[in-house]
């Protein structure tokens, strides 16, 4: 008996080793491609951020941390862009989370024509950002002021994208309009994984709708919220196309984001290494925010 167990154990070890080897072999192409197209460019980027490369010249001089020092001490434009990004991202994430959950809750009801509404709300996700930007650029310039003037609303009687205090809200509106579809679908999928009997038990125990939302729906949605938050923080910090199409960073640099600045510095000003250093700083900020958020939210989610 003992001998047969021993043989069985050895066989299991062989099978496990063989499976590990198979997994390893299957992982190699992925690791190779990931290293080639992600890790290698990132490392090259970090290296070039420590040089004075202009994107064209063959001679590259190592200048240490000069670009980073310049970013934090002599670049009010970068600080202005970071402030814009943080302000925009905060508002964007709140809008996406709140509106996404509200829309998903509405679309989760079984009412007539729900498939049509779900399709309609998903439509902006399939449109190209620049196209949407150009369409809204005309809406803000021609349509909104016409309504503003007709209704006597001063704030809307001129293009809000031309007002340095209001332009950010114009971009936010379009950004949320485009960006809401995917999170809504994710929340909808999340809602449909919640066991219905939990709601039934809660109702029997006398829980009202808000209690059910607070104690059942939200904890089950935490994993989705985590994903949506990471995606929307990334979307907020990386915003570029809408700014290019709607305001071109203006008026008076009030809507310049870091991505827009990176593009301008790299491709218009030929300050490639400086632009890479700016991207590295944003990458670090993004990584720190994501790690903090994942750790924080992992403590709150329901363990299935």
């Amino acid at each position: 008996m003992a001998k047969s167990n021993k043989i069985k154990g050895t066989q299991n070890q062989v099978v496990a080793r063989s499976r590990r080897l198979t997994f390893l072999l299957f992982s190699i192409p992925g690791i190779f491609l990931y290293s080639l197209f992600f890790i290698y460019p990132v490392l090259m980027g970090v290296y070039y951020s420590l040089t004075d490369w202009d994107g064209i010249a063959r001679n590259v001089n190592f200048i240490g941390l000069k670009n980073y020092v310049k970013i934090f001490t002599k670049s009010p434009r970068f600080q202005n862009a970071i402030t814009f990004n943080l302000k925009y991202t905060l508002m964007y994430v709140v809008c996406i989370l709140v509106l996404g959950i509200v829309l998903a809750l509405i679309l989760n009801h079984r009412v007539k024509g729900i498939t049509f509404f779900r399709a309609m709300f998903f439509l902006p996700a399939v449109l190209c950002g620049v196209t949407v930007g150009l369409i809204f650029s005309q809406i803000f310039y021609r349509v909104v002021p016409a309504f503003g003037q007709a209704l006597g609303i001063d704030l809307l009687s001129t293009n809000i994208l031309g007002d340095k205090r209001l332009a950010i809200y114009g971009i936010l509106f379009v950004g949320v309009w485009v960006g809401l579809a995917m999170p809504t679908v994710l929340f909808l999928a999340g809602l449909q994984t919640i066991p219905q009997d939990l709601y039934e038990s809660a109702m029997i125990d006398g829980a009202n709708s808000f209690d059910q939302f607070r104690y059942i729906t939200m904890p089950f949605l935490i994993p989705v919220i985590t994903i949506v938050m990471i995606l929307s923080i990334k979307g907020g910090l990386g915003i570029f196309d809408l700014i290019k199409a709607l305001t071109d960073g203006g008026p008076a640099r009030s809507t310049e984001s870091v991505s827009y600045l990176v593009y301008t510095d790299a491709f218009k000003n030929n300050k490639f290494s400086f632009a890479i250093a700016e991207s590295v700083v944003v990458g670090v900020i993004l990584a720190v925010v994501s790690v903090v958020q994942v750790v924080f939210q992992n403590r709150k989610k329901v363990s299935a």
Binding site: Y141, R142, P145, N159, G162
Partner: peptide, 11 residues
């Protein structure tokens, strides 16, 4: 143009 700051090239 009254709304010059809100006007783009196309408009």
């Amino acid at each position: 143009t009254e709304d010059a700051l809100g006007m783009d090239n196309d408009s």
